[in-house]
Design a protein around this nucleic acid. Structure first.
Length: 476
RNA sequence: GGCGCCAUGGUGUAACUGGUUAACACGCCGCCCUCUCAAGGCGGAGAGUUCGGGUUCGAUCCCCGAUGGCGCUACCA
């Protein structure tokens, strides 16, 4: 019999938006599934009704779609599978692996306070089964606890190797709350079994939970899946990534003008490496990633989220993107910013091609580069100060404008020839005119080669913007 | 506190089962190019692998301890 096709899952809890760590976990599962030809399942762990919301579910799905992760099965909702967990709990009770606990919150506190290990003292574990049954029949609420056996529990983690816990460290944890709702410990195991998962790829914060789950697999007589724990992502100060460090939701990066493939590429390399053969590369397409991804490339130590590196990936992707592919992303950015371009589609694509090598974010197309898409743009005061401060410049540039108006043709080459001849004639440096013109035409000190910009904008606009250069507000 | 995990320049990673001038990328600095800024080209600083022991002819790599960080320790997930 050959090994079954891998089945993996991403199982977020909709108590918040898809955050960076969750996205990376989802990505690794997805890459693993795609690499092995396996199945990627999406499961929503919404058993905490208080904190879960439909809005968060939508947010998570949106985040996954944004980074390009599609799932083969689901989304399944645990809230709709309650009978499954209850049946499993009953099975565990029947087989002597679990028992009802009638302790109140106060009793539990007292129990933990008395115990040296600060754990529940299992006082309900040895209740007479008949008595327990009667008390439940009488309507007394009971939580179902797992009866942790003696000994120790270990497994061979695909990332961390052998991990072992003494069972004495484990409390008789709750499987089913007294209201019949399962806890995480029960529902994950039941679902992971029911969905026939072969590999559990999840955050390393679950390492300590794993023995509790393994104990249930054994009690249920089910073979263990392969566990692969993935190191966590930390903030720049090496503490757990949180709002304190800035954006933590994946969609926030979309809103910051990050291109999805850049984000995915960046994320993939956080805690994973394609190995020696590819160590000189960092840019990987989705296809590269799925081809190269294996569990043994996952590292054991936590990784720090580096915004500078993300920004670098972003510029690389924006530059490499075809303008036609970039356009929808830019249009979304424009819509968000309330900006309406005033150009023909062909001109827009040409402008994107010209300026994309200089963009660091999709946002740049909506602010820094407005002058390429509209006649309604601002002049950057710093640029004016830097290149347009000379009092003699406006008049010169206006005169240059009239020369362009009188010129028979207007191409990148002819525009440059004319300007340089004009500079020589006036005894000024061509550079001064070029830089001044750049600010007059684009509002920015940073732009592509001036004459390429002129050719793009067209003769009329160049003349227009040069003629009104004296109206440009001087800074400060 | 208890238990578990981790530890290579500022950051992400590499270094086959112990033998390398400890490599690559981001970031940083400088030079070239140049009409600005990026890009690109060239060069540079920055770790002797957290610290201390041990094993070994020889440890980033194996063992022990310490330290630090993180995680878990709920009728949250």
């Amino acid at each position: 019999m050959s090994a079954p096709s891998p089945r993996v899952r991403f199982a977020p809890s909709p108590t918040g938006y898809l955050h960076v760590g969750g996205a990376r976990t989802a990505l690794f599962n997805w890459l693993f599934a795609r690499h092995t030809g396996g199945t990627f399942i999406l499961r929503i762990e919404d058993t905490d009704f208080e904190r879960s919301s439909e809005e968060m579910v939508d947010g998570i799905l949106e985040g996954m779609r944004w980074i390009g992760l599609d799932w083969d099965e689901g989304p399944f909702f645990q809230s709709q599978r309650l009978p499954l967990y209850q049946a499993a709990a009953q099975k565990l009770i029947d087989s002597g692996h679990a028992y009802p606990c009638f302790c109140t919150k106060e009793e539990l506190e007292a129990s933990r306070a008395e115990s040296t290990a600060a754990m529940y003292d299992r006082r309900c574990r040895n209740l007479d089964p008949a008595e327990s049954k009667q008390r439940r029949l009488d309507g007394q609420a009971a939580a179902i606890r797992f009866a942790v056996p003696d000994g120790s529990t270990s497994w061979n983690d695909a990332v961390f190797g052998k991990v072992e816990f003494a069972n004495a460290e484990l409390e008789d944890f709750v499987l089913l709350r007294s209201d019949g709702i399962p806890t995480y410990h029960l529902s994950v195991v039941v679902d992971d079994i029911d969905m026939r998962l072969t590999h559990i790829i999840r955050g390393a914060d679950h390492i300590s939970n794993t023995p509790k789950q393994i104990l249930q697999y054994r009690a249920l007589g089910v073979e263990l899946p392969t566990f692969a724990h993935v190191p966590l992502i930390l903030g720049p100060d090496k503490t757990r990534l949180s709002k304190r460090h800035g954006a933590t939701s994946v969609i926030a990066y979309k809103d910051m003008g990050i291109v999805p493939e850049a984000f995915r590429n960046f994320l993939a390399l956080l805690g994973w490496s394609p190995g020696t053969a590819n160590k000189d590369r960092e840019i990987f397409t989705s296809e590269d990633l799925t081809r190269l991804f294996t569990l043994d490339g996952i590292s054991k130590s936590d990784a720090v989220f580096d915004n500078d590196k993300l920004a670098w990936f972003n510029t690389e992707y924006i530059r490499a993107y075809d303008s036609a592919k970039l356009l929808p992303l830019i249009e979304a950015e424009w819509r968000g910013a309330g900006f309406i371009p005033n150009r023909a589609p062909g001109e827009i694509l040409a402008a994107i091609d010209l300026i994309k090598p200089r963009a660091r974010s999709l946002k740049d197309f909506g602010d820094l580069f407005r002058a390429y898409f509209s006649d309604d743009f601002e002049y950057d005061p710093a640029a004016v100060t830097k290149f347009l401060a000379d009092a003699s410049l406006p008049a010169l540039l206006q005169e240059l404008g009239t020369r362009y108006a009188a010129a028979p043709d207007f191409t990148e080459t002819s525009a440059e020839e004319l300007l340089r001849a004009f500079a020589a004639e006036k005894g000024v440096k061509a550079g001064a005119l070029i830089n001044g013109s750049r600010v007059a035409l684009t509002g920015q000190a940073v732009a592509p080669s001036l004459f390429a910009v002129m050719a793009l904008l067209g003769k009329e606009r160049v003349i227009q913007r040069l003629s009104t250069v004296d109206k440009v507000p001087q800074a400060g």
